[in-house]
């Protein structure tokens, strides 16, 4: 007979504040934050490309700072505010960075995009008017294979510029389908 509870190890209830909601999950302590977000909480917007800290695809925000969820243990971030890509838009309204990514063509395959967006959000929080070089430095832990980074950096600068001048377009993004 097949035993369906093959996985043991130390299991605990972790209570995480994710995107403003208090979520709890019963998880082995050796499951990373990445695994718990994707597999237990259904937040598959967080991507992964190596699980070893080498690509940045799994970046989430912990208390507003970018961290690699593949190298974080949920028990270590209990009580802290976790933001994933699913928490960036407010309801149906895109975050200014999400909007500028869409408009500038900063998204190709989109696999690096969640990590890029969250990292960029943390940067603009700390430095609302970054130079091109500062944006590149901030995103340097997030690999992208599609864009050559050009339009990603453009998009971050566009969002910063709009925030600075208060020129924020509203309404649906021109031409983009849902």
């Amino acid at each position: 007979m097949v035993n369906e509870t093959a996985t043991a190890g130390e299991v605990r209830v972790v209570r995480l504040r994710v995107n403003g909601e208090l979520r709890s999950a019963l998880a082995p302590v050796h499951a990373t934050l990445l695994e718990v977000l994707r597999e237990q909480l259904g937040l598959t917007g967080t991507k992964h490309g190596c699980e070893l800290g080498e690509c940045g695809a799994c970046t989430v925000l912990v208390d507003g700072r970018p961290q690699l969820s593949c190298l974080a243990l949920p028990v270590q971030v209990e009580g802290r505010e976790i933001t994933t890509i699913e928490g960036m838009a407010v309801g149906p309204d895109l975050h200014p960075l999400q909007r500028s990514f869409v408009e500038t063509g900063a998204v190709q395959c989109g696999y690096c995009t969640p990590g890029m967006l969250l990292t960029a959000a943390a940067l603009l929080e700390e430095q609302p008017h970054p130079s091109r070089a500062e944006v590149e430095a901030a995103l340097a832990g997030n690999l992208c294979r599609c864009t050559g980074y050009v339009k990603i950096v453009d998009a971050v600068l566009l969002a910063a510029d709009r925030a600075g001048t208060g020129r924020m377009p509203d309404g649906p993004v021109d031409g983009a389908g849902a």
């Binding site: 190890g9 302590v29 050796h30 992964h48 699980e51 243990l73 028990v75």
Partner: peptide, 12 residues
Amino acid sequence: MLRLPRFSYRRP
């Protein structure tokens, strides 16, 4: 997905 081996966690 590359996963961690089992361990237990202590917080002194």
